[in-house]
């Protein structure tokens, strides 16, 4: 118990003292995981909509693949991305290994299936005849997708939360392709691992409190948006 209080106190102190390294790590974490979530939305929402609305030949196989990929261990993703990004790998010439971009790429691969799966589920909760009705109202393809998205926006917010939650909390991929390089690719989770290895449990706890606070703040903001009662204007 003593350790928990010490960690909490240390966390508050670190935040209040404005330790630049702590802020640097926290901001990098937000930036990397936030961007990865954004990109995964750009990829995952259309994919989820498509898989939910369209019927085609390999649909079932693809849905199965997405569901499997939702549970992909970050370490495995990290390993695969590393193999591609190594100097000797097919994308080695880009020089992306041990950069924040490498972490973003790995996290996009982790979050996209999650976003796709959640999107699919939220569209499938709609009345299956609704897409037809929208078309029958004279929607152009763009208007069609926009209305479908609007109809399942609460489910999509859940997708954002799940995707963000998956990447901000993962450590395996960040470690493998980011390398936990100080001032460069050190994010909260990898910093926590390092501090545990160093035996600085109080600092590790402090960082974990910051991580949880960040994750909570973002999720809370999204929940507020999600639960906000729509105001009807006449």
């Amino acid at each position: 118990m003593d350790l928990i209080w010490r960690g909490l106190a240390r966390g508050v102190k670190l935040l209040l003292s404005g330790d630049p390294e702590i802020y640097e790590i926290a901001f990098l974490t937000l930036r990397v995981s936030g961007l990865a979530t954004l990109v995964s939305l750009v990829l995952g929402v259309p994919a989820g909509l498509f898989l939910a609305v369209r019927k085609f030949r390999f649909r079932r196989a693809l849905v199965g693949a997405v569901n499997t990929a939702m549970g992909l261990p970050p370490t495995v993703v990290g390993l695969w991305v590393a193999i591609f990004l190594w100097r000797s790998g097919p994308l080695g010439a880009l020089g992306l290994m041990y950069t924040p971009t490498a972490i973003v790429i790995a996290q996009v691969l982790i979050a996209t299936p999650v976003v796709t799966g959640f999107t699919m589920a939220s569209v499938q909760q709609l009345d299956p005849k609704l897409p037809r009705q929208i078309l029958a109202l004279g929607a152009s393809p763009l208007q069609f997708w926009w209305l479908v998205i609007r109809e399942c926006r609460f489910g999509l917010l859940a997708a954002v939360m799940a995707g963000f939650g998956a990447v901000i909390s993962e450590v395996g991929a960040s470690m493998a392709v980011g390398g936990n390089v100080r001032h460069h690719t050190r994010v909260l989770t990898t910093a926590i691992v390092l501090e545990v290895n160093k035996g600085n449990f109080d600092v590790a706890l402090a960082l974990s409190f910051i991580l949880m606070t960040l994750a909570y703040a973002v999720t809370f903001a999204l929940t507020v948006v999600q639960q906000r009662k729509r105001r009807y204007v006449t």
Partner: peptide, 13 residues
């Protein structure tokens, strides 16, 4: 225009 068996209204007023 098309009207189906269910109203199939969209969320809103």
């Amino acid at each position: 225009s098309v009207v189906f068996q269910e109203p199939l209204l969209l969320d809103g007023t």
